[in-house]
Design a protein around this nucleic acid. Sequence first.
DNA 1: CCGCGGGCCTGAGAGC
DNA 2: TGCTCTCAGGCCCGCG
Length: 292
Amino acid sequence: MPELPEVETVRRGLQPVMEGFLIAKAEARRKDLRFPFQKDFVARLEGQTVTGLGRRAKYLMADLGSGDVLLMHLGMSGSFRVVADEGTKSPGQFHHPRNEDRAHDHVVFHMSSGASVVFNDPRRFGYMKIIARHALEAEPLLKGLGPEPLGNEFDATMLARACADKKTSLKAALLDQRVVAGLGNIYVCEALYRSQLSPRRSAATLAKKNEPTDHAKRLVSAIHGVLNQAIKAGGSSLRDHRQTSGELGYFQHSFQVYDREGEPCQTAKCGGIVKRFTQNGRSTFWCPKCQK
DNA sequence: CCGCGGGCCTGAGAGC
DNA sequence: TGCTCTCAGGCCCGCG
C-alpha cells in the first residue's frame, strides 16, 4: 500500500505523540511479521526516548536515546493508529473497520505521552528492525537505496544518468528503489501520465549523449508535483491506508489513470481511453494516446 | 552485475 | 449463501 506520500503522512501523524517521549512499554504480539522479530526487540525499545522520527524512502526511522534506530516498513497493508490509551476508542476509529479487527494489531508502543501507537498489518509484509546508528550505513535494507525524490540530489541530470545504462522500461526503472527511492505503482503511473511519457518507453531514452532530455526534466517535475500534492492530501486510501487519526487520505480522488481503466483520458481534447496492462507483474494504467 | 518471475500473506470482490 | 478465482500502495530471492 504505502508509497512515499502515505509513509510521510504516517510520520507526521506519529511525530507529535512519539518524538520527545519515552517508550514506557512495547509489545510484539507475535514472533514475526515478514521476518522474525529480533530476540531483544522489546528490551531495546522499552525505557528509550524517541529523539526523532524520520523517513527514508518508504521506511520510518525512530531515533532512540540509546543510539539505536528503529526501522519500520509498512509493506502492503500496514497502518499505524494513535489511540489515547490502548483499549479506549478514539474518534475516527469507528469508521475504520479494518483496524477494528484487533487480530492484526501486531505491535504496540505505549508512550509516556499517554498515547499508544498501534501497528496493524493483515498481510504481514511489513517489518521492524532495530539497528545501531553507527551500523546504518552498512544496513542491507537501506544500502542500495537511490535518492529521495523530493530531496536536492534528485534532478533530471541524476535521473537520466541512473537510467542511461538500463535495459528495462521506464516504468520498471522508476519502480526500482535503486534509481529513486519511495515511488510505487500508483505514483509511477500518475507521474508518467502527467509527463506524457509511455511506461513502455526504454528507460535509457531519458539521456542523450549523457545529458538529460526534456523528457527527463518533465518527468522530474511531474514526480515532484504528484508527490507533493499527495502528501498534502494525506496520501491515497484505496484499501488499507489511513492517517494515524483513522481518517482517510483523499488523493485517490485525484488519480488520473491509476485504477481508472476504461475511463476517458482527462487531458483536454485527447479523447483517449485509460488502458491497463501488466508490466513486471504489476498493473500499469496509462493513456496510449497521449503518453509517448 | 542485471532483469524477471515467483513467493510471501490476508481479504475483498466478481462470477458462478 | 458459499465456493473459487483474481487481484492488491512492496520487496527479497533465485534463476538465467
